[in-house]
Amino acid sequence: MNLAISVISFLWPFILLGLGWGIGRSIISRHQNRLEVQEDAFKDIRLHNIKYIPPMDKAARPAETHLVTGSLVLSIDVFRRLIASFMQMLGGEVNNYSELLERGRRDALLQLKAHAHRLGAQDVYNIKIQSASIGASRGIEILAYGTAVKPL
């Protein structure tokens, strides 16, 4: 009995790391699949990060402009976080975080497109993307915002 408890207490960090590695991998691949499906669904919405304001004469004013946003908080599993902390010591690219942020930005932009789509707009101008870390290792927030312009 005592042996079993000590074996478990010795092993539990490895169990957590194993869980993180396995479930984390399936969460990442499901997220990527969802992103691909949604990117295809919203491919007709154009994103611009220029401040260009469509030329309009006074007779043809745009029907609406709307501030649209997309945001999410994303984190990686303990296993990948541990590997990343080794990579940080060694220097060079920390692939796990590069990949996390890449996925997060794609998702934030997709949510922004979905917001524009709900408003019936086709173009979003002056897009800004930013990220911030939320608390101690609680994850990274990625925010994308811009102005959806819906012409008459």
């Binding site: 957590l16 984390g24 599993d77």
Partner: peptide, 17 residues
């Protein structure tokens, strides 16, 4: 914090923010 073990989107935080 528990969700943080396996990673992915932290919906509670997304909603809060």
């Amino acid at each position: 914090g528990l969700k943080n073990i396996v990673g992915g989107e932290l919906h509670a935080y997304t909603e809060l923010l």
